[in-house]
Design a protein around this nucleic acid. Structure first.
Length: 431
DNA sequence: TCTGGGGTCCTAGGACCC
DNA sequence: TCTGGGGTCCTAGGACCC
């Protein structure tokens, strides 16, 4: 049987966080802009003007402060509440183009669509240009679209759509003349391929595979042996054989992590406790939203790994619950006990956090017959009341520990934060 | 002075079992 | 004297992604 050719599109928001900020503040248009990571640490989004100035992805702000000043680069703290709402709208518009099983929400700013059923009756480039125009008109975000016979090829096509002016932001590798495809691929470094990171890039270069074209010509089983099964799949995907289907129903989470670096160094156990309890409450919020229970909790603390003047301190402790839980009181209490065990005085702490793992679905969990189930019911009532109060009156009204008070020592810095342009119902604020 | 946070998957190796 | 081998599960660590 002939291999059934699939068609995928990868749609992403150009310079996502910068584009979101520009939608609400047009004065940021046509000037260099960067958006920083938490704590105003690194540049995680750059406008094209900033990229042209040579600002690299992930570079710490303090290393580029001269360039920022000289070129009058606009610098913003990240405003995830706004980006998340813009992302929701982006994905929901794309959902209107395909059946539910044909859309995969890959990340905050990326989405795969399976367009196989459109290939015979539509000009795909024209169709995708329509999407682009609609997203720009409806939510003001610029996007790029790559089309390919596999997800990996669609990713490369997306890269080309951004780099090559001739493509006008939509690049279709699936129907491109193979001669042209080969030519373009000879110009793209192999490190651009989805799944090829720094280490593998080097290893590939060492054996003479330098471009996408080189990798596409490799022998899949041999590459599987020399590297991993993932690499084998990547080569096959570049050869037009789709190995990764659309994942329209993401698996339930396997772990939940909540952690932050501190704005200043922390030395006191009490401050760590406050910070930890906030992170636990954040993680519990996500746990309950996904209707999961936590079986294992890990708490960790770290000093600054970049400070060469003191030895790096990093410690973690894990606790397994006899019965999985989503009760914030249990989880905070255990975290405190773990924290006491990993705390060492005299250390300047830079970061701490918690991992929840061994997550199981609340609906499928069968409680131990020998345990007292009445406590679970009490806990659930407590949690519901707790969450209702927070929703109605704000998080600062009730919490475990004083962690939602403003201006805690350990709070992260966000000195260049834009407004929250949305209300809690997702409406745009007018004032 | 100042360096993000939240994830997934794969592999190798050890323990254990029959 | 000769001393198997296949399977599973778990964990730590690595690599990668956005």
């Amino acid at each position: 049987m002939k291999h059934q050719e699939k068609i995928f599109a990868l749609i992403d928001i150009n310079n996502c966080y910068v584009s979101c900020e520009r939608f609400f503040n047009p004065r940021l248009n046509d000037v260099p802009v960067i958006v920083l990571s938490n704590n105003d640490g690194c540049a995680v989004a750059r406008s094209n003007e900033s990229k042209a100035l040579g600002i690299k992805m992930g570079v710490p702000l303090f290393q580029i402060k001269d360039e920022v000043k000289k070129n009058n680069i606009k610098v913003l703290s990240s405003n995830y509440a706004v980006y998340a709402e813009m992302s929701r709208r982006f994905h929901s518009i794309l959902a209107s183009y395909v059946a539910p099983h044909e859309q995969e929400i890959y990340s905050i700013d990326e989405c795969f669509l399976d367009l196989t059923s459109f290939k015979n009756n539509y000009d795909l480039v024209e169709y995708c240009q329509g999407m682009r125009a609609r997203i720009l008109e409806w939510i003001g975000l610029p996007i790029s679209i790559g089309i390919g016979r596999s997800k990996t090829e669609a990713k490369i096509a997306n890269h080309m759509a951004k780099k090559g002016k001739r493509f006008n932001s939509v690049c279709d590798l699936a129907t491109m003349d193979p001669k042209h495809r080969k030519y373009f691929w000879s110009l793209v470094e192999v490190g651009e391929v989805w799944g090829v990171g720094k280490k593998q890039n080097k290893k590939l270069n060492d054996i003479g595979i330098k471009t996408v074209l080189d990798l596409s010509k490799a022998n899949p089983p041999i590459m599987g042996k020399m590297f991993t099964v993932c690499m084998q799949r990547t080569v096959l995907e570049l050869q037009g054989i789709s190995c990764m289907p659309i994942d329209d129903q993401p698996k339930p989470k396997q772990q939940i992590v909540a952690s932050r670096s501190f704005g200043v160094k922390i030395t006191e156990l009490d401050d760590l406790k406050e910070a930890m309890s906030k992170y636990v409450q954040d993680a519990v919020g996500r746990l309950r939203k996904e209707k999961l229970l936590c079986g294992v909790i890990t708490a960790f603390v770290q000093s600054n790994p970049f400070d060469p003047s003191v030895p790096y301190y990093s410690k973690a402790q894990t606790y397994k619950f006899s019965e999985p839980t989503d009760c914030v009181l249990d989880l905070v209490e255990v975290t405190y006990r773990l924290l006491v065990r990993i705390f060492k005085s005299g250390i300047k702490y830079k970061k701490c956090g918690v991992f929840f793992s061994d997550l199981i679905s609340k609906d499928q969990y069968i409680p131990d017959l020998l345990n007292d189930h009445s406590q679970n019911i009490k806990n659930e009532n407590l949690m519901n009341a707790y969450e209702s109060i927070q929703y109605k009156f704000g998080k600062a009204k009730i919490s475990v520990g004083p962690c939602y008070f403003k201006d805690r020592k350990w709070s992260m810095s966000r000195e260049m934060l834009s407004k929250n342009y949305f209300t809690k119902n997702g409406m745009i604020r007018v004032k």
